[in-house]
Structure formats: C-alpha cells, structure tokens
Design a protein around this nucleic acid. Structure first.
Lengths: 239, 239
DNA sequence: AAGAATTTTGACCAGTTGGAAAAATGTTAG
DNA sequence: CTAACATTTTTCCAACTGGTCAAAATTCTT
C-alpha cells in the first residue's frame, strides 16, 4: 500500500485532506503537499481580493464570510472549500501584506545619501497609500484592535527591521549629515503622515473639498511632506 | 385632556415614548422632553463608557450589544431600555467625541505667536492621544469605514473649522512668521503624527521595546515632534 | 470515453445577533 | 400609603453567523 497519497473513496474527504496536508506538510514531512491546481490558485486570488475589500472596511470581527463570498462571486460553502476558516483568509492577507508593506523601509540604503534616501522612502510610502489603500486600512484595523493576530510578527520582524534602520539613521546623525533626533520617532512620523492619506482618506477629501481633494492631493502631500521633513516650519529668512 | 404628557396605561409604552419624545422634541416642539432622572443619567454614562471600550476596539459592526451590556454590568434588554438601538449609542459617542476632539484646534489663537500656538496645539493633541486613546480609536475606526455615520459632520463642522484655521496659518505665512507651506496638509500632519501614538500604540510599544516603550514615550514623542515641525531634519550646521 | 479527482451546490445546524413584549420589581410625589 | 411612573428581568424571536456534509456537477488524466 502506498502511504503517500492516502486516497479515499470519498472525494470530499480527499479534498479536505489536501488542505490539511498542505498545512501539516512542514511538520509531518511525509505527505507531499501536491501543488495547487490552476483553479485553486485563481479562486484563492479572487477570494483574497474580495476579503481584502471586506476586512479592510469592517475589521476582522465586522467582516462576514457571506459578504466576502458575495463579493468574490461564489457561494459560502464554495469559499470555505478553499479556506476552511475565516481566520485563515485573514492570516494569509496579513502575512502577505507585511512583506510588501515593509519593502520601502527595507530599501532605505545605508550607503546612499541621507536626504535622497529619506525623501524617496517618504515618496514610496505615499505611493503605497495611494495605490494600496485597502492594504493600509487592513493593517490599521489590525493595529486598532491591538494586533492580536500579528503581534509576534510586529515584535520580531518589524522591530528588527526598524532597529536596523534606526541604527542607519543614527550613523547619519553621528556624521552630521542629518539633524540629531530620535530615529524611532522619525520613522513613526513618516509612517503616520503617509498612511494618513490612505486610512483617513474620507476626512482628507472632505476637508480639502472638491477643488483640492482630487487626485492632485497626493502630489500636494508629497511636496508638503518633503518640505516638512527637510526644513520644518522655520521660515526661510531665519534658516 | 392635557396633550402634554400622553400618558398611557401601558407602562412600557410610556417609557418608550419618553425616549422618542426626547428625540422628536426638536421637531415636534409640542411634548416637553421631561428631564432625565438621576438613574437615567448615571446608567447612560455607564453604558457610554462601556460602549466606548467595545466600539473603539472592534468598530461598529464588530461590536455587539451583549458585549457592551456585559462590560456595563447589566442585561441586554436593560441596556436597550436606555438606548433603543445600537446605532443610537454609537451616534451619541461620536457626536460627543467630535466636540472635544476639535477643541484643541479651536483654541489655536490667531492673535497669538505662531510657534507657541502651533507647539501647544501639537502638545494638546498628543496629550489627548495619551489620555483618551479609546476616543482616538473610535474616531479612527469610523474613518476607516468611510465615516458612514458622521460624514456630514466632517463635511460641515470639521471642514469649516479647518478652513478657518488654515486661513489663520496662511496669514502667518503671509507675514513671514512661519514658512510658506500648505496649511491643510500641515494640519493633517499634526493630526496624523499625534494620533498615531493612540491608534498604533501596540506597534509603537512593540518597536520601542520594554526599555523605551514605557510612559516616557509620550515625552520623547513631544520632543521629537516639536523639533520636526520647527526645523525638520536639516542639520544645525546648515540651518 | 471512462474513471478518478476536483469543484460546486443545496440542505442543514448550533450558536449568536439585534431587538420586542410583557411581566415583575423599584422608586417617588402627593 | 399608594398610585403613577421608572427600571429591571424573563421570555421569546427572526435573521444572521461560522461552519459541516453529502451529493451533484465539472474537470482532468489516460
């Protein structure tokens, strides 16, 4: 008897096992995970897309599987065939997110010039706020709830990366190339100001009004933030 | 027959009418709203407190009446006696919030000196992030969801206030007392940087670690933000 | 084309949700 | 004290929740 595939005469059971096998593969190391079919990849993508819509708008608890299934254009049981639990969908979204989310900071190069590096970091973050607002909101939602599902990732991966980049900033300060200030709070303020344009988009648009709240607002924000981080509010005459 | 009180022999109906009367008082202008009893005021406060806990953590959809009732230490129907619907509680919280939330900006005085005024505005906002993090999160949650329940307030009250203060800032710029920059985005950046310490508190604490993530973080943030808005990152040697 | 595997569907379920109704219990002004 | 009112509890409900299951439909492999 080949113990590899564990085929069963009951198709459903086999399908379910497939999922569990994929999950357990790392620990069991016996069953081959069997690569995903084309349909599986496609449908999973559709589901994740829909879930991003819903989770980013209502948070984990406020989102329902039915809603996600509806947006994804499939029945609830069908959705649950691909992701056996709600949490699984969320976990996937979050962990994929964290990687792309931190990419801009990762790119900040210790060997580059401080101001161009910081400037393009701000720019990249702002572009992400513009191009991936749902991702930003998903992240914000998770934070607001105390990050129950990603606290370890925050405490380890995120912290390590920030520690590393804070050290880079400190070096630049030691070399007198940027003003001496708190590198951690500097990073926080870049996060806060850029993500604000995704997370509080409604407010920004409402306050700017129809005349200035159009797509140009991101260009205005970029210009403003650049000046803020470069010179602050001290007038030119006194600089 | 006195049309004032509309007493009914059914006590429940009378009690319910009381609520509706209070709500309709403005439009009907006929029935006296009848002042709240001591117990009503106390219980409503307890409920609003509990609701703030729950709503700020889970958002409107993610929060349940049962949960709020439990935190408030009363039964669900009892809670519903004071606030006949979930939305009512939320609406009350939000509208009360908006007043106190904008107070610091309101205090920014056109006749004062620009830098002290801006500095103490930042300080006050940061103190609110420290002392009322739940309020901040409630607001953030609402924004993330597109502010469905307060969009008019944002578009009218908030916008008007910001327009007014932006004009003040512009005047200061015209007088050369602060650097010329976008006053709206300046206000956005103050909001973003200060509220970050309430809304993303978990992240801030996790990244700073146990050594620097204690209560002192708000003092550090205040110092950092003051420098940022004053001078930006330009080193002293080049200022 | 047939058999095996995968995908989709429909019926179902137990627990939770927001809320209604009414009865039971307190409180208070006259 | 007692009637009128205010508050609380008990019971109930229909809709929704996350999730299961077996059968049916489809797709893939040979």
């Amino acid at each position: 008897m080949p113990p590899i595939k564990l085929k069963s005469s009951v198709p459903t059971a086999a399908a379910k096992r497939q999922h569990k096998a994929a999950a357990k593969a790392a620990t069991q190391a016996k069953e081959k995970p069997r690569p995903l079919t084309r349909i599986q990849r496609e449908k999973q993508d559709i589901i994740l897309e829909a879930a991003l819509d819903v989770f980013s708008l209502h948070g984990f608890r406020g989102a329902t599987i039915d809603q996600i299934a509806e947006v994804a254009g499939m029945s609830k049981p069908n959705l649950l065939y691909y992701f056996p639990r709600k949490e699984e969908i969320h976990r996937r979204l979050i962990s994929e997110l964290l990687v792309t989310w931190l990419a801009p900071l990762r790119e900040m190069d210790a060997d580059g010039d401080p101001f161009p590096e910081i400037r393009s970091y701000i720019r990249r973050k702002l572009e992400m706020a513009r191009d991936f607002p749902r991702e930003s909101r998903l992240f914000a939602n998770e934070m607001l709830q105390g990050a129950p599902r990603i606290i370890e990732m925050i405490e380890v991966d995120l912290k390590n990366l920030v520690d590393e980049k804070a050290a880079v900033l400190t070096t630049w300060m030691d070399q007198g190339r940027i003003a001496r200030t708190d590198p951690y709070h500097l990073i926080f303020s870049i996060w806060a100001t850029t993500q604000h344009y995704a997370d509080f988009d409604v407010q920004v648009r409402a306050v700017l009004g129809p005349s200035r709240g159009g797509e140009g607002r991101f260009e205005d924000a970029a210009r403003y933030l650049e000046q803020l981080f470069l010179y602050g509010l001290t007038p030119r005459s006194k600089r």
